[in-house]
Design a protein around this nucleic acid. Structure first.
Lengths: 239, 239
DNA sequence: ATAATAGTGTCTGTGAGACAGTATTCT
DNA sequence: AGAATACTGTCTCACAGACACTATTAT
């Protein structure tokens, strides 16, 4: 959809001038692009869409698109995520803008990038009623990406890592009720390293972000785990 | 300068359609805006420019402008700073994009904001050969700002604060050789709180970022201070 | 009994912050 | 001698990280 829009702009660029002092193609286009992350099968995954036209035909790219009239940047990102996943109110964080003059070979396109987090639970409910090729890729096994999307994904993962440590974003990747082991797994996946169980629990419980729901979760033939929920979503924010 | 460009766009908007499927005004304009900080007279100051046209006529605003063809976002910001200060190679850090639909009453304008740091020393060399009203304002006594620039400045100062603590940006606000007391003053101004002299020196010297130049600086009738220089500009970077 | 995961406490080292007195230079 | 700033070391507390065993559930 973004692509057909750029084609139109391109035509006006190659056609004869229209008399105004400044033509469209001298002003850059603006998009939003989103690195949507979730945890599936014990892996940190990113949502990608397979391209159907040049440039970068057949390659994968992160979802994105133009900003509609009257929309804020966040709303545009949110809308695009809804279009791809049928989930709304997905957690979004702005990552920065990418504007290398040649990042899109067709036209000058500046993108405002976001990273987004959803729990796999929310995704399961909705099927992909979408004709596009859409896929979840493990961050360790990303295909080659079009445009500068590899750079954007890398920055997103780096920012998520930092963010995880001084805020409480981890909960965005979990269902409302979760065990401490599940929470630790999220930390381990994002930070890409193992954590000590006792130290992790000590720190998390000391932070006072969790509420013991009293419920337990049985999974397999062993001692059931306590279920916790997140107490104060907006605490411990540094950013 | 940005303003006359927006006027042109505005005319094409109110004039009759030109036949293309998508006219210019449906695509947002993009600018860069920069919060340039320095330390003058023991105060943290921000560069502002007084506006000469509506909207926000007579009010102050941070410097900014459109991106030229072929320029990266950073280059555009850098160029605008050079135009205002005659100083180049000013330290720049991207802050984020601001895109509220109504932030500019004339047209949809999305801005990519930067914060920038210069040492007062570099500024002293060059005089303002500029016709515009330009001024350095203490961050504690900012005038009312046009557009959403107050929000941008606040975010810049917050980011600078955070940044100061886990990187070595402080040096961007100092001359090449400086005393530990001067360095501490920069920290105190940015963090807006007093620091203990012994703890500060202990921490800074332990970080191994400084090189003792062997020189000293006499100022007043008292013991002269050691001059240090910054050892490794790119160490301790988190971002 | 066994398998499988949940859950728990101590010790050590490091870094942050509180705190006061001596050193050096010039008038 | 006095004024003004440079410079220095110790103690305490909180937090991070290393580390191993008991508890509970189902088969």
């Amino acid at each position: 959809m973004s692509d057909s829009f750029i084609e139109t702009i391109q035509k006006s660029k190659t056609g004869s001038g229209n008399g105004t002092a400044l033509s469209c193609y001298e002003t850059p286009l603006v998009t939003v692009d989103i690195v949507l992350c979730t945890v599936i099968q014990n892996q940190l995954k990113v949502l990608l869409i397979q391209r159907k036209q040049p440039p970068f035909d057949h390659m994968w790219a992160i979802p994105g698109g133009f900003i509609h009239v009257g929309e804020t940047l966040e709303q545009a990102a949110s809308r695009r995520l809804y279009e791809e996943t049928n989930v709304d109110s997905i957690y979004l964080e702005q990552l920065g803008s990418f504007g290398q003059p040649d990042r899109d070979p067709r036209a000058r396109v500046i993108t405002v990038a976001y990273y987004a987090l959803v729990s796999a639970e929310k995704l399961q409910v909705e099927a992909h009623a979408n004709a596009e090729e859409v896929g979840w890729f493990s961050v360790n096994e990303l295909p080659e990406l079009g445009f500068d999307h590899e750079e954007i994904v890398k920055k997103a993962l780096a920012k998520l890592k930092r963010h995880l440590q001084d805020t409480s974003v981890a909960f965005q990747l979990l269902p409302d009720k979760f065990t401490l082991t599940e929470l630790q797994r999220v930390y381990e996946l994002v930070l890409a390293k193992q954590l000590d169980k006792r130290n992790f629990r000590k720190k998390i419980l000391a932070s006072d972000l969790l509420k013991d729901t009293g419920e337990t979760k049985m999974e397999g033939y062993h001692r059931p785990a306590q279920l916790y929920s997140f107490a104060s979503h907006r605490l411990a924010e540094t950013h």
